[in-house]
Structures are given as C-alpha cells and as structure tokens.
Design a protein around this nucleic acid. Structure first.
Lengths: 347, 347
DNA sequence: TGCCATACCAGAAACGTTTTTGGAAAATCG
DNA sequence: CGATTTTCCAAAAACGTTTCTGGTATGGCA
C-alpha cells in the first residue's frame, strides 16, 4: 500500500554524514571504525529501519547465503527430518534454504538443479537423488559444492552421508529369524539407489548365512512409496507359499504392506510380521506400532550440511563420507509366525 | 574443482560481436530483434553454456522471482500438501520457493519474515502463522504482498484462504449425534488461531442446537500437535464422566487421542470414537482408518498462490477471501458408543 | 617544531543484469 | 531524390552492496 521506497545504505550514509564505505564497515563490524562512529551508524540504521539487501550483497560478494535442498518427496514423513537437520546448521550459518521436490524424477531434478545454479546457491544437498547420469554429473561438476545423502555412485568420490545398511538390515533379519520366520519377503527401493542396493545385498547375504532360501519371488522391486508397499504386499500374499514376514524399504512401504495384509483380512503381527525402515514418528504410535530400523535422519541432515559448509570454505578438501549407524527398534508389528510354515492364504 | 568463471551475458556479447543490450533483448524475446540475430545469440548462448544470473536480474528488476512460504511445522503431514499447492503455481510462474519452519513460535516467525524481506521475495504465503501482533503487522505492512492461509484476523482485510469450518464440524458432530453419542470432547487448536476459534464456535453452537451439554471440561485447549492429542485424550478419559467421542483439531491430534485411548486399553471405535480434521493420506490407511473432516489442502495452497500472484501484479486490488468447502469422511474410528452412557474408565 | 606512523574515512570500481536513450542504416513516402 | 519513418543496434545508467585504493587528520616521538 504505502509506496515506501527501500531504505538503502546510501540513506544511512547521508543521514549520518559518513561515507558509504564507513557505514558498510561499521555495519559489518570490520576494520578500524571508532566505537563512536559505529554507534552513530547503528543508531541511524535502526532509526531509518535499514536492512541490507541480500540480493545486492549476493551479487557483489558472489555468495548468496543460500543452500539448495533437493528432496524426492516431502510428503514422505522421513524427508522433513533430513531437511530439519540441514535447516539447523543453515540457521547457524545464517543461510536460507531453497527447497525443491523432485518426485524422484530425473527431469524434474535437472530442472531444479539448474534453477539452484542460476540462483548461485552456495551449495546444495541432494537427498536420495539421481547421481550417476551424464546430465546430472555435468551439473554437479559445475563447481558448486554439493553433498549427497542416501544415494551415491561409488565411482565418484563425492561428499556423502549415508546410513549403515548392514547393521540395521541384518539385525532385522536376525530378529525375524529368531522368531522362527523362515520365509521373508523383501521390498527393494529404487533400482538406481545405492542405499537400496546395499540393503538388498545385506539381506541376501545374511539370509544365506542363516540358510534361508530367498527365491526371486521374495524380492519385490519398487520405490519408497505407499503404493509400492501395497503392491508388494499383494504380490507376496498371493504367492503359493507366501512369506510369514515382510521387510519394507521404508516405513511408508511397510504401511503399504500392512494395508495389503489388512485388506486380505490378515492380522498383524498374528498372521504376518512387518518391519519398516526409517522410524518415522508415526511408527511409534500405538495405532501403528511398527517394528523398524531406526535412521538418524536429522543428524544425517545436519552432518551433510556441515560437510557442505566445510567444502564451501575449502573447495579442494578431499571428499568425505559419513556413515551413520542404524538400529532395529522392535515394536508390535513382528511376532512369531502362526505356524512353522505359513498357511496358504489367498486374497 | 575446475576453477571455471561464470559465463556472463558480456561473453555472449563478445562472442557474437553484438551489443550487450541486443543480446539481452534477444534472450528475453523482446522488442524488434531480427530472427537471424536472435538465432545467432541463442546459438552462442547455448554453445557457451550461458545462464542468466538470477541475482543480478533480481537486483536490476527489483523482483526476485521468489516466493516465501512460512509453515508452522513441516513435520505435520498436512503442511506439505499446502506447500505443494503453492509450488504448483510457483513453477507455473517460474518462481522458486523459500520455505521456512516457524514451529508456531512468533519470534521465529518474525526472524524468518525479516529474512524473506531482506531477500526481496516477490511475496509470501503464511500458513497458520501469527497475524495480529504489532510486530507481525509492522512487517506485513512493509508493502511486500502476502496471503494468509488458515489463520487471519478479521480486523485486517488481508487476502485470505481458509476452509469452511461450519460445514465440516457440524457434519461431524451430527454424525456423532446420529450414532447416539451424547458426550463429546473437543480439542481446540492454538488460542490465537482464527480457524480454531471458528471451529469451536461451530461445535458449541451445533451442540446447543442438538441439546448436548458441553461443560468446560469437554473442551481441551492446545495446538495441532500429537502431544496435545495425547494430553487431551488422557484428560478426557480421566473425567468422572468421560466423553464417548472426541473430536481432534487435526488428524495428528486425533492420533494423539487414539494413543491415549490405546494406552488406557480402550478400543476404537468400540469404546471410544475419534474424529480428526485434515484428512492426511495416513487417515485413509486401514491401519489408522480415521473418520475425519477433509480439507482441500493442495487446492487451498494453489489458490493462495494465485491470489498472491494477482496481488503482485496489481498491488491495489481489493483483498479477497476464499473459503473452501470441507466434508466429513466417515471411516472406521467412529461407531455407536458401547452404552447409552459411557462406562466409567480410569487410566 | 617537524616527521612519520597510525587510525580512520572518502571515492570509486565492481558484481551481471535490464532498460532507457540515442543513433545509424535501411526502407518508405512525398 | 530528399525527408521521414521504421528497424535495429550501441552505449550508458541503474539496482545496492562490498572492497580496494588512496588520502587526511591526529597523535607520538625525536
């Protein structure tokens, strides 16, 4: 409404009768500016309501104090946790977050990456994004610092924050094995996700060690979404010899499996055990009560942001990888199977 | 790594031998630039990998192509839905989103608002934020366009997008009444939320119409969070005459109530009916199966963003308010009470 | 009293755009 | 063929900072 013009540093300069540069120095707390001068400047600045233009500063300093964050799906409750971690250090570093959804789609990811680069973000955090294709690599090599979370390509020595998939998954399978489950279904995450791959490998290796047979039909390929969980659940339950337990690639995945089980009239954990992965807040609610593998999402987000800050400060630092431990949280969605061998059930 | 310098419009100018302004015009598709010249420019631009600096443009045009979004809590699954709606139109308008969490805390909100203003966002969308305090109003009056979602102060004629709280809430209470519930607990959202206030008023009015007695102990005050739901549930269930049904101020709220009920060993809906508000994706999962009031969150977000764009284009347009209808979605968390009068239960 | 170092301040350049203004060449019209 | 319009292009200003370079008092010291 009130057609106010922006009050600039020049106004402060004029108001105080001091030079532009002096005002700038005084405000930045730099160099040798007498306390008296500084006080004068500060007083005038607040009196006039002066606020420095971040965009002018960004142009001059070639630094935008902005961090870009790419996330596959904010709707998945685990995403905000990671973002929160990034936000924690962003605030500490006086940076702002530019957050974008890619829906796991590479085109969208490329689009958003270009936008971030155009905006001259100081760096970016890529959470479960595509990291291998030539197009993506080209953008990553654009000399803007970046850190990867939960998905990488070992061929490229990037800064990376991930979770220890071996511990969590093997704990989970051993838990199920101890409960006397002998047929376990596994939902595999996105095919180009390093994390999803590691988890499957661990699962297969551990199954072998435990002398569990894992035929192909016991591995369902999809993504981290609910629909994949539902589809996987339906698939598994329709098998001639359905598994007595199913491990999801995410909690949301596991909820999808539950959905399929419930729609078939199966009770959990009575007739089917389900284990998730993420440990979203929901998982601990009694209405859900999901046995799952806990990930330190917020800490991982913060660690990634810290790594990013380091790299921004020191672009030639050798890349680091940080692997966070995981642990199984046993809740109510797992129990001993009803029979040594699961009964045949049809949807 | 590769210490590349940014390729600027000047480089394109030099490469083509054309003037800066000509290149700019050609790229912007402006004025009268011959097709041939334009082709030359475009070719050179892509060949050199030129990308315009958004920050330089922002400084010059006094327009950042950025929209700030303030949200109370991204972790609440209803937030991303609103944001998604805003994002939809932001992409259409070639704007980027600057998203911040305020945790419902006014100080944090002020901090983030100032940051957004410093960054010269073209406008902002405030979802369930504080809108009345002098400090907030001062910032809102800073002549940067804004739109409110779900919380406003009728004293100020702001652009506003809300939901029809009358329909939804009265549908819900009538549903419960029809099921023969006579004592209904109500969880009230944040005390300074207009939406929460309207809902309570509707609840009380409709209860009166139905000749239901609503003593003070049947209204619990809190926020939209899970903990409030748990506290409310415990409070209600500890009453001498506990309600047979409880309405939450959000789905997460309702989940909290469920939590409290389950921890007391009550079954839902057998011994307690629960209704939520939001209709988050989770609510429809069989494991939850929550009767709730549906809100068109994404559409509301998009509508707010549209309003914002309009106001940016036309700052003096008279403020509009858009109210979206709501409707009750009956699922499995509501049923007839076990007894005409609820049995006495102690936690 | 004169010189030098120090402490502070002023002016100007630079960041990469868009936009305005002006000007030259080409085309049209009288 | 000259004048006027049209079409395009060149130069320069502006956006609001930070920072570099240089300069002027002021104080201390000889």
């Amino acid at each position: 409404m009130t057609e106010r013009k922006r009050v600039t540093i020049l106004d402060v300069s004029r108001a105080t009768g001091l030079a532009l540069s002096t005002v700038s120095n005084a405000l930045a707390g730099k160099n040798h500016v007498s306390e008296e001068t500084r006080a004068t400047v500060l007083e005038a600045a607040t009196r006039l309501g002066y606020r420095a233009s971040t965009v002018a500063r960004a142009l001059r300093m070639q630094r935008s104090f902005t961090i870009g964050v790419l996330v596959a799906d904010v709707a998945n409750p685990s995403s905000p946790d990671f973002v929160r971690g990034v936000e924690d250090v962003a605030i500490r570093e006086k940076c702002t977050l530019l957050l974008s959804n890619t829906d796991g789609d590479e085109e969208r990811q490329l689009l958003h990456m270009r936008t971030l680069l155009d905006r001259q973000v100081d760096g970016m955090v890529l959470i479960s994004q595509h990291v291998s294709s030539p197009a993506v690599r080209a953008l990553l090599d654009a000399s803007t610092p970046f850190v990867l979370i939960q998905r990488r390509n070992p061929l490229f020595p990037d800064d990376y924050v991930g979770s220890d998939n071996v511990i969590g998954v093997s704990e989970a399978i051993n838990h199920l094995h101890a409960l006397k489950h002998r047929r376990i279904g596994f939902v595999r995450g996105p095919s180009d996700s390093s994390t999803a791959g590691e988890r499957l490998e661990t699962f297969l290796a551990e199954a072998k060690r435990l002398r569990l047979k894992v035929d192909d039909e016991l591995v369902f390929k999809g993504d981290y979404g609910f629909e994949t969980g539902v589809a996987a659940g339906r698939h598994f339950l329709r098998l001639r010899r359905p598994p007595t337990a199913i491990m999801g690639s995410s909690d949301i995945n596991a909820l999808g499996v539950m959905e399929a089980a419930l729609e078939s009239g199966l009770s959990i954990p009575g007739q089917l055990s389900v284990v998730g992965l993420d440990d979203i807040a929901l998982a601990s609610f009694r209405a859900i009560n999901l046995t799952t593998i806990h990930l330190q999402k917020r800490a991982m987000g913060a660690a990634a942001a810290d790594l990013l800050i380091e790299r921004i400060r020191q672009p030639d630092r050798t890349p680091q990888e940080l692997i966070f431990p995981t642990r199984l949280v046993v809740r109510g969605s797992t129990a001993a199977p009803a029979l040594p061998e699961a009964p045949r059930l049809r949807a």
